[in-house]
């Protein structure tokens, strides 16, 4: 794994458009049954144009990008801020790169800046991961 260094890009993860089916599956599988993500009438009554994606769905996509890159057993920390809503039909992409190598508890960790971006180039999640290399 010595090819990982500052500036290394994490292979991007491109996702299919967010559909109502995507949100229904995620609601059931995650147990987050907030109707604002699955019931259009409820979402409109709450002042939204329609249902929108769970923030944690995008964070799960970030984790997929990371575990595609390195085994999950190397993931030490994962954090994200939810900075914009992901709307129905949006197409999001996960990307990231190594910004620093640090030593913690005797192991070398890659500090990675990670983000989710929609098709307009707007960031929806901004976060950081620490991955042992």
């Amino acid at each position: 794994m010595n090819e990982v260094q500052v500036g290394t890009d994490i292979p991007v993860l491109e996702l299919p458009p967010i559909s109502r089916y995507t949100l229904a599956l995620y609601a059931g599988a995650s147990g987050d049954l907030n109707p604002i993500h699955i019931d259009s009438d409820h979402a409109r009554n709450a002042g939204m144009p329609d249902v929108f994606a769970h923030g944690m769905l995008s964070m799960a996509y970030l984790s997929r990008m990371l575990t595609n890159w390195q085994p999950q057993s190397r993931l030490r920390r994962l954090g994200a801020r939810f900075v914009a809503i992901t709307h129905l039909h949006d197409v999001v992409t996960c990307s990231g790169c190594v910004v620093e190598l640090v030593v913690e508890n005797g192991e070398t960790l890659a500090r990675c800046d990670i983000r989710v971006t929609n098709a307009n180039g707007e960031m929806t999640l901004v976060g950081e991961a620490m991955v042992a290399i």
Partner: peptide
């Protein structure tokens, strides 16, 4: 519930 937004989430493993 409809006024709650998720601001951030951090995990340590």
């Amino acid at each position: 519930l409809s006024r709650i937004m998720h601001g951030s989430q951090e995990y340590e493993y």
